[in-house]
């Protein structure tokens, strides 16, 4: 099963930041050189669109979370580069962890109260309780 919900807040955050930076750069660098009102409007609209595209690309490159799991193990991909995969049988214990923003993660312990890996299920649009039950069954078998 693959979970990959787009985090709207994260996406709009990247888009908003990109648009704001481009508009700021426009105000400082280009605006003094443009004297036509039509060109001014066209530049603002174009930069808005460019900001949306850059923000979206940055979100998918850095923050978009995809969680895939099956009977054998799971894979977490954050952005386009960072991936982590494990087998269920590497772990000894499982818990549910609510992070500071209230999102639920399934926390997988390699040994009891030792090192762990967090699976960001809520961020990826899945049901953390359901995955925890699934994992508990796997760990017991």
């Amino acid at each position: 099963m693959t979970l990959k919900r787009v985090q709207k807040f994260g996406l709009f955050n990247y888009m908003g930041s990109a648009i704001a930076l481009l508009q700021l750069a426009y105000l400082i660098l280009l605006r003094p050189l443009i004297h036509s009102q039509f060109l001014e409007l066209a530049a603002v609209a174009t930069l808005f669109m460019v900001g949306v595209i850059i923000g979206r690309a940055l979100y998918y490159q850095r923050s978009h979370v995809v969680v895939s799991y099956d009977e054998e193990g799971f894979l977490i991909a954050k952005g386009s580069k960072k991936t982590e995969s494990h087998l269920w049988n590497e772990f000894r214990n499982v818990s549910l962890f609510a992070d500071s923003s209230g999102q639920l993660n399934v926390r997988m312990y390699f040994e009891k109260d030792g090192l762990y890996v967090d699976i960001p299920v809520s961020r990826a649009g899945g049901d953390a309780y359901e995955l925890r039950s699934f994992v508990q069954r796997k760990l017991k078998s």
């Binding site: 549910l96 609510a98 309780y129």
Partner: peptide, 25 residues
Amino acid sequence: VDEFERQILKGRARFIADLNESFKD
């Protein structure tokens, strides 16, 4: 018990403690 867990992880106990990690069995 499941409902209890959900409510506590949602922050039901926040006025006295931040209970944020839950184990079953």
